[in-house]
């Protein structure tokens, strides 16, 4: 999804290629593609939230949420939420930096974002190990692991994209004019953040 690095077009013009396509929209193709992909991802989360809705609300003999004997670590996950939301700020800062030509800011922002994302993922794994129930323990366990696991997978994908952006940032790619390679992972990262806010609110808090 992040494939379109403007930096590669150095050799353009040396051979006869296709005519440049007419740009018929103000949004650039990769950014639009990312937003549409996110729309699709939101619907995937939507199907998991539908399962949540059926298990918690529609099911006539639904027990409490969480059911008797189950406990979710609201505080730890709350700290984790704060970490993830902060990482959105650093992500935004990274992109603003490269837009102003500040490469050090870009690199620092990306590394901080990456570190916070990793912290989030590790905390999540520790939480799994200590939470005291498994995916097979009633539908509550299934939905809890389903939603947090799906989100965790997206954090992993986001971190992969960010790693790529970071590697390239340290190798001297990106400029105030060309920064799709940061902007697109950044958009994805904000989406991961948004989904976590929804998951945290619905699973842990409400």
């Amino acid at each position: 999804m992040t494939a379109h690095a403007p930096a590669v077009d150095v050799h353009h013009g040396e051979h006869h290629g296709p005519p440049p396509a007419h740009q018929s929209s103000r949004v650039s193709a990769p950014v639009l593609g990312m937003f549409l992909f996110i729309a699709s991802e939101v619907m995937l989360f939507g199907s998991f939230f539908t399962a949540y809705f059926f298990v918690r609300v529609v099911n006539p003999d639904a027990p409490g949420w969480p059911p008797e004997g189950f406990h979710v670590p609201v505080f730890v996950a709350g700290v984790n939420t704060a970490i993830l939301v902060t990482s959105s700020f650093t992500m935004h800062w990274a992109l603003q930096s490269i837009k102003r030509g500040n490469r050090a800011g870009l690199q620092a922002g990306l590394v901080l974002t990456l570190a916070m994302g990793l912290t989030f993922l590790l905390t999540q794994m520790l939480e799994y190990a200590r939470v005291g129930f498994a995916p097979r323990d009633t539908a509550f366990g299934s939905v809890f692991y389903g939603l947090t696991g799906l989100h965790g997978a997206h954090v992993f994908v986001g971190l992969t994209l960010l790693t790529v952006a970071t590697v390239r940032a340290f190798r001297g790619h990106f400029s105030p004019e060309h920064h799709h390679g940061v902007e697109i992972p950044g958009i994805y990262w904000h989406f991961v953040d948004v989904m976590w806010i929804v998951v945290y609110a619905t699973i842990y808090l409400l």
Binding site: V27, V31, M91, L95, G186, I187, H190, D193, V194, I197
Partner: peptide, 18 residues
């Protein structure tokens, strides 16, 4: 008109949703 067109708008969306 697409309301989400850039990283900055996505970031603002995060804050609003929060």
């Amino acid at each position: 008109l697409n309301p989400l067109r850039s990283e900055a708008e996505a970031f603002r969306f995060v804050l609003l949703l929060l």
